[in-house]
Every structure is written in structure tokens, then in C-alpha cells.
Design a protein around this nucleic acid. Structure first.
Length: 225
DNA sequence: AGCCCGATGTCCT
DNA sequence: GGACATCGGGCTA
């Protein structure tokens, strides 16, 4: 373990400051820990079959570090039909089904055959809010939907944007159904970032406390504060 | 504000 | 049979 791989309790390394480049396409082929931070502030766009556009600003992400990461679906080299997309090229969508009823959306990072990815945990909705509310309300009984209930969780945002396994394996760099727009350029302001342990991975022993979750400090759309 | 629980497909032992 | 990268409802304070 070098300084890059801090111990279980250490703070995870942050993005190094770099030159500001004009509207470069997102580089997905980097370590998931770095991509997780770079994705914050970018916009996830979903275009439905009828042409309507749903979008949200990414405000919360988690990095999953692959074969060595006890919390990752690919831990120990696990490779099944379900997680096959994680082994594809960076920029591929990995959409999985969990708890018998929910979908979660990930962006594949790293190299081909290196099963690392970034889980998108929350969005600040920016386009198509009414349609999102319809998608979200169909799975509820009565309580009114606040704007901060639309996409403030990994399964909520999949409901809102109508993301399911049909989009698993989609190439985010060429798809016209789901893609990421570069709405933030250059390194993110470090002071606006919060770096915490991941959610829902208590079972992962020494990997449970690793700070591989990032969110935008002032956002009201984060899943857990 | 918390805690508990049911929903239930897919993968694991 | 049990666990799970979750959510919403119903309960106790």
C-alpha cells in the first residue's frame, strides 16, 4: 500500500488541481475514485422513447474499487450475467437490480476487464421534473412529493429517469438514450466537497469505513446527510 | 428524529 | 435459506 491507497481510516485522496480545459469530453477511463469526483456537477441526461428529455446535476457518487473491494459486486473476481457490464470499457452503463424491486445506475471506469465503477447516488433534477414526479409517484401511496424526493437516492433517480436493465451495457459516449453532459469544467472546488464512508456497505468489514463517497456540501438533494 | 419491517429478483453458501 | 450498493410506511418519542 502506497500513499495513494490510504489505510481503512485515512481520508481518500482528492483530485489534484489541473489546467482548465475547454469542454473536453469526460474521460471515463480513469480510476473510479477519481471519476467519482469528476462526475460531480456534470449532468446525467435521459431521453425517453417519445423524445422527452429528463436531466439532473450529479450531486452524490460512490467509487467501487473492483476485485479487491469487499463492498463491490466484482469482489474476488465475481463475474456473472448481472455484473458483466462492469468488465466492459469505461463509459459503459452498469445498471443492476437489487432488493427484488430497485435499480441502481453506475458508470464503468478504469480499463477493459477491470470491474470498477461509480455509483450515481443522487441528482439535483434540472429538466423534466413533472415527468419525473409521475414516474416516482407510481410507486407510492399518497404522500406529496417534494422536489428533493425526486432523485435523492440511487433507486429513486432510476425511477425518476426510467432507468432499468434495458439500459444495462449502454455506451454512454454514443447513446442517444442516456449520456452525460459536461456542465462543470476543471477541478471541483475542494471546499464544496464532502468525503464520507459509503452507504449500505456495513457488511464489507475493513472496506466499510473507507471514504469512497463524495457529495456536494450545500446540495439539498443528497440521499443521506 | 429515530427504529422496524415488508417488498422480492438474483446471487451466494 | 440468507444476504443484498433500497425505499416507503407505520410505529414510538
Amino acid at each position: 500500500m502506497t500513499g495513494r491507497d490510504a489505510g481503512p481510516t485515512g481520508e481518500e485522496p482528492r483530485l489534484a488541481p489541473g489546467p482548465l480545459l475547454c469542454m473536453m469530453p469526460l474521460a471515463f477511463d480513469q480510476p473510479s475514485r477519481e471519476l467519482a469526483q469528476e462526475l460531480l456537477g456534470q449532468t446525467l441526461v435521459r431521453v425517453l422513447d417519445d423524445g422527452s428529455r429528463l436531466a439532473g446535476r450529479i450531486v452524490e457518487t460512490e467509487a467501487y474499487l473492483g476485485v479487491k473491494d469487499k463492498a463491490a459486486h466484482a469482489f474476488g473476481g465475481r463475474r456473472t450475467q448481472r455484473n458483466e457490464s462492469m468488465y466492459a470499457r469505461a463509459g459503459t452503463a452498469y445498471v443492476y437490480f437489487t432488493y427484488g424491486m430497485h435499480h441502481c445506475f453506475n458508470v464503468v471506469a478504469g480499463e477493459v476487464d477491470e470491474p470498477v465503477a461509480v455509483l450515481i447516488r443522487a441528482l439535483e433534477p434540472t429538466e423534466g421534473l413533472e415527468r419525473m414526479a409521475v414516474h416516482r409517484a407510481s410507486n407510492r401511496r399518497s404522500s406529496p412529493l417534494k422536489e428533493t424526493d425526486l432523485c435523492s437516492g440511487p433507486a429513486k433517480l432510476c425511477q425518476a429517469l426510467a432507468i432499468d436493465r434495458e439500459l444495462d451495457g449502454e455506451d454512454l459516449t454514443s447513446s442517444d438514450r442516456i449520456f452525460i453532459e459536461t456542465t462543470r469544467q476543471g477541478p471541483i472546488e475542494l471546499a464544496t466537497l464532502v468525503n464520507r464512508a459509503r452507504i449500505g456497505v456495513d457488511y464489507a468489514e475493513d472496506w466499510a469505513q473507507r471514504r469512497l463517497r463524495w457529495y456536494i456540501r450545500e446540495s439539498a438533494h443528497v440521499s443521506v446527510r
